[in-house]
Amino acid sequence: MSIRAIETSYAGHRFRSRLEARWAVFFDSLGMRWEYEPQGYAVGPDGARRPYLPDFFLPEQRLWGEVNGSEQQLDVELVFHAAIPHYGLPNPAGPHVFSEHQVQLLILGPVERVSALVDAKTGEHAGYSQPTHTVLSFRKGDVFQGTASFYATGIDIEPDGGLVGDDGPDIRWNTRGSEWGNWVCGGVLLSEDRDEDVYAGYRAARSARFEHGQTP
């Protein structure tokens, strides 16, 4: 039996799930512009193209965003094809190129807790432990799985996390690595006090209450 997500209204949009709405709250908390389901595309190689409607587009970061509560709900082959520029998602803001990688897609899992860190010796505040999320990028014919973490004014991306396939298009299932979108506790970023806004953003998204479809 499948569990049906609860549609939720927020900021003039009707989100398909509360998790999507929580990520919109998070983006708003950080002052990041977002568009919800702006455009659908047919992605994949000729003869196997499939419709795909990404959840978010972040124009300032030039990234598409896909939200899933668990990897079991994620169509891995579809988002893999979406990350290959010549038959995947186009980028209306221009390519996001970092370290020769064309970063295409940010995959977001549950909105996890962010913990305040305390120096064991002094008892003083020592920053925050915050989640990392998955990004898919393309470089020289190959698709790579990397990580992304948020900071006060944007996103910090490490695209070179591992090769997961090529534009054959073949997914290397045996070397694919960690679950996409749910690296929330794997690879912890220790942020500085200047990222207090990120901590507040995660907290606002987690604590948002959407009663009867209304705004939090």
Rank of each mutant, 00 (worst) to 15 (best):
K121A: 07
H81I: 00
L78K: 12
V114Y: 05
S149D: 09
D156L: 09
L78Y: 01
P95Y: 09
F80K: 03
Q102H: 09
Q130T: 07
D119I: 03
D119N: 15
W173L: 07
R172C: 03
F150N: 09
E124T: 12
A152Q: 12
D156V: 02
I84Q: 01
V164M: 14
F138S: 06
D75N: 15
S129G: 13
I157V: 15
I84P: 02
Y151F: 15
P131N: 07
T132K: 11
F144C: 03
H125A: 13
G146V: 05
L105E: 11
T122Y: 13
T175S: 14
D142Q: 10
L108M: 11
E77M: 04
F150Y: 10
G94Y: 03
V97A: 04
L78I: 05
N91Y: 03
H101C: 01
Q145F: 04
D156F: 12
F138T: 02
D166C: 09
G123C: 03
L106R: 05
I155D: 11
P85D: 03
P169K: 10
T134D: 10
H81P: 00
T153Y: 08
G161T: 04
Y151E: 13
R176K: 15
K140A: 12
V111Y: 04
K121P: 00
P90D: 02
I171S: 08
V97G: 04
P95C: 04
G141K: 05
A148F: 02
G141S: 06
H101E: 01
D167I: 04
D75M: 01
P131Y: 07
Q145G: 04
P90I: 01
D75E: 14
T122S: 15
L106W: 12
G154V: 10
L89K: 09
P92W: 05
Y151S: 10
G109Q: 06
V111G: 07
K140C: 03
V97S: 07
G154A: 10
D142R: 12
G168W: 05
H133W: 14
T132P: 02
R113N: 07
P85V: 06
A126H: 08
E158C: 12
G88M: 03
L108T: 09
G177C: 13
A82T: 09
S115D: 08
E112C: 08
F98H: 10
S115H: 09
E179A: 15
V111Q: 11
F150V: 03
D142L: 11
A148N: 10
S149P: 00
E100M: 03
T122R: 13
K140S: 14
T147S: 13
H125V: 02
